[in-house]
Structure formats: C-alpha cells, structure tokens
Design a protein around this nucleic acid. Sequence first.
DNA 1: GGGAATCTTGACGTCTCCTTGACGCCGCGC
DNA 2: GCGCGGCGTCAAGGAGACGTCAAGATTCCC
Lengths: 224, 224
Amino acid sequence: MTQLLLVEDDATIVRTLTVTLGAHGYRVEAVGAGSEAIERARSGQDEVLLVDLGLPDIDGIDVVRAVRMTSTVPILVLSARDGRDAKVAALDAGADDYVTKPFDMSELLARLRAALRRARPAAAASVVRAGDLVIDRQARRVERAGRLVHLSPTEWNLLDVLVRTPGSLVTQREILREVWGPQYFDETNYLRVYVAQLRRKLEDRPSQPRHLLTDPGVGYRFEP
Amino acid sequence: MTQLLLVEDDATIVRTLTVTLGAHGYRVEAVGAGSEAIERARSGQDEVLLVDLGLPDIDGIDVVRAVRMTSTVPILVLSARDGRDAKVAALDAGADDYVTKPFDMSELLARLRAALRRARPAAAASVVRAGDLVIDRQARRVERAGRLVHLSPTEWNLLDVLVRTPGSLVTQREILREVWGPQYFDETNYLRVYVAQLRRKLEDRPSQPRHLLTDPGVGYRFEP
DNA sequence: GGGAATCTTGACGTCTCCTTGACGCCGCGC
DNA sequence: GCGCGGCGTCAAGGAGACGTCAAGATTCCC
C-alpha cells in the first residue's frame, strides 16, 4: 500500500482517481485546497503527491514550490493546460513529472511507479547490515562497530559481488569473472588471498568467519 | 557543464540536439548503436542519458533495461511512438521520463533539469561539522577551531563536492568533472595538489588526515 | 601597469596495492 | 597410515598511485 496525497478540487476527478488508484495499491487521501496540501505535505506521511494546477486558492505551481522547500517527496503535476510554459514552470518549481489531462490511466500509473522507484532507494538506501557491519554500496563505505574500514579497490569489488545477493552462493568462476575479468576464471589463488584479507578486516575471528563463508569447491557467500 | 550521452542513429537529430543542448550547458556525446551505449554507460562518465527508441541494432527499451542493471543514471527516452504501451514499457524498464517526438525543446530542457535535480545528491545539511571544523556550504565559509579559514575558489569547489555527501566516496572522475570540467577527467595531478592544500589548511596533521581521506585508485571521501 | 593570489606543471621520494610463490592445515579416498 | 587436492596464511617484490614541493604561467584587482 502506497500513501498518496491528491490535491484536486474537482469532486468527479477525485472520485475517479480514488477508485482507480485504490485498485492499484494506492491509499488515496484527497485535499481540495493548496494551503491544506502544503500543511499536510509537511507531515511527511505521503509517499507521493499528485497536484492539479487548477486550484481555488493558490496556484498549483506555488504549492509545488512550497512543498519543495521542506520535502523531497515525488510530485506529479496534473493539468488541463498543455502549454509549454506551464510545463516548464511546474518542472522548474520542483515537480518530478507533468501529465496533461485528459491522461491515460496506465500511463499515469507507469509514471507513478517510475517516480516511486527513484524515490525509494534514496530513502532506504542500499545498505546491508550484518552484526556490527554496515555496508553502504552506494557510498562505497564499510563500517565495523561504527568505525570506517578501508578497503582496496579489489577488496571492495569482491565484497560487493558477495553482498549484492546476501545469503546466496556465488561460484568461484562468477566472482573471478566479475572482479578480475573473464580470463581469470581459474585463478582461485586470488580468491583465497582476498577473502582472507576481507575476513581479517571484517570478521571478529577471521579463522571462524560468520559472514564470509566458504562453500568448498564451489564458491563463497555473504551471510547477514 | 553537464555530460550527456545521446543514443540516437539519426544524424540530423544528433546534430540538432548537440547544438541546442550545447548552447544550454550540456556537453553532448553521441553514439548510434545500443550496444555502444550500454558499454559507455558502464563507464559512468555521463550524468544523464537521452535514448531514442528507434535504434538499428537493439531495441531502445532493452538498452534502458541493460543500463539499469548496473547504473542509476537518469534516463530520458525519446520516441516517435506515442503509444500508451511503449510509454509504459519504457518507464517500467527503468526510464525516468518519456518524451514524444516531435518534442518542444524548452520542455525537453525542463525535463532534463528535473531529472538531474533529482539525481544530484540530496543537498546535505548546509552546515557540516567535523571535529573542530565548521563548513557552511551556503555561506561558503569554513572555520577551524573558531577561526575563519580562507580557501581559493578551486579549493572551495573541491571541498564542496566532497562535503556534499559526507562519508561517501567520490570518484576521481566525478570530482574532476565537477570542479574542473568533463575534459579534465584524467588530470589526477590537480587532485593531488589541491587535496594536499586542503589538508594543510584543514587537518591537524596533514600527513595523517582524519577528514579528507584517500581511496587509492578510486577517489576521495570526506569523513566527519 | 604592477603586485598578489591563484592555477598549472613537472620532478622525486614514499606508500599502497596487486601479484606471486611457499608452506601448513584439513578432510577425503585409497 | 599415507598421499592428494583444496583452502588459509604469510611475506616479498615490482608497478603504479600518491604526497610533496617549488618554479613558472596566468589571472585578477588595485
């Protein structure tokens, strides 16, 4: 269920969208005035905003601008105006997308998915936790017990391959191909050396690893 | 200057867009085939992709999907097809936006701005503290132990790029692009010189830095 | 036009990282 | 009991990246 705030004063459109979006996994909350919308957006309970430009009190573009002052929530603007200037103004005010009425519902849904897809990883970043380890793939950062751990490029690439699929086995061949290149497929020496280095840096007792596990003869896995 | 990869096989459109986008602050690199695009996107040197759907070798949607496997770079799809299905397919494959040809240039520019605004790291707090350092990004002001530290323009720009995402690694390429411009991507000399200058001004023991850290062969990070 | 600040460039010593080989341990099959 | 293969560990060497310094070159401001 995705919480969506609809800012729209036309009761017919509100009804249509509430039903249709509701059928596609959205919980729709509707407000009719821009001032209400700004206040409610501040509470941060909505994951995405759908803003109509034709509001009774405030211009929709000002709503977008006001919300953007305090929030990075995705905003889609709906409008009957197909004018170039309105689009540019809305997008530059901070809107993420602009859909012209009459709009196609499957397109609107696709654009909502796209906006949410972008917004979500940013909020719940691609961070993997395991015991006292924090691995932030985006920031290329590894912490152990709150302290930054320095990894060499190869060490990081190896860890990244394993962490990408937590808990599941990655074959030696696959690791070698990803980290060193396809022609290194039989250099299992490298794996032994670098896995050992990672364990020394990341495990409490490198000789009895809890996170970087060996499947003898097959490959390695990262266990959270 | 923003580095943009244009994936388009029609030479006329390439020429038009290169000129027009170039006049608006984009450095346009064009490739005509999808396979080229996928390979080049992997290098991570482009800040945004503009993909045409009608390519000679691979379907543009597959290009989008392939790039999305390895990258979160913003992708705008250009297409002559106005069909609902094509839009939905492209957006669900990972495109950030879909613009129908013939498109209005000012709208395309606005959509590019919107996509880039989202992609750029959510501006960290305007004031960042680390030890006895106080860095006010908005005021362009740096204090160390309560005393104002003077930075040259380049020194400031470099520090700003690193402080914008505290704790996360910034690649050499990215720093050079942001501070000196895309064509300086291999002038790592500059980095060494300016990082050293910053350390001399900001670190207690420049030879054992605590905040401006090196990841040899990869980049630098600001550690609070 | 002159001086100061800033940027660019090159050289050199130092350090990190990747690679490689040797050795010991363990489990398994003979 | 013994040999064998796979794994973990260690350390050395060389290539390349980095830190440092200082001398031009350039820009900017007065």
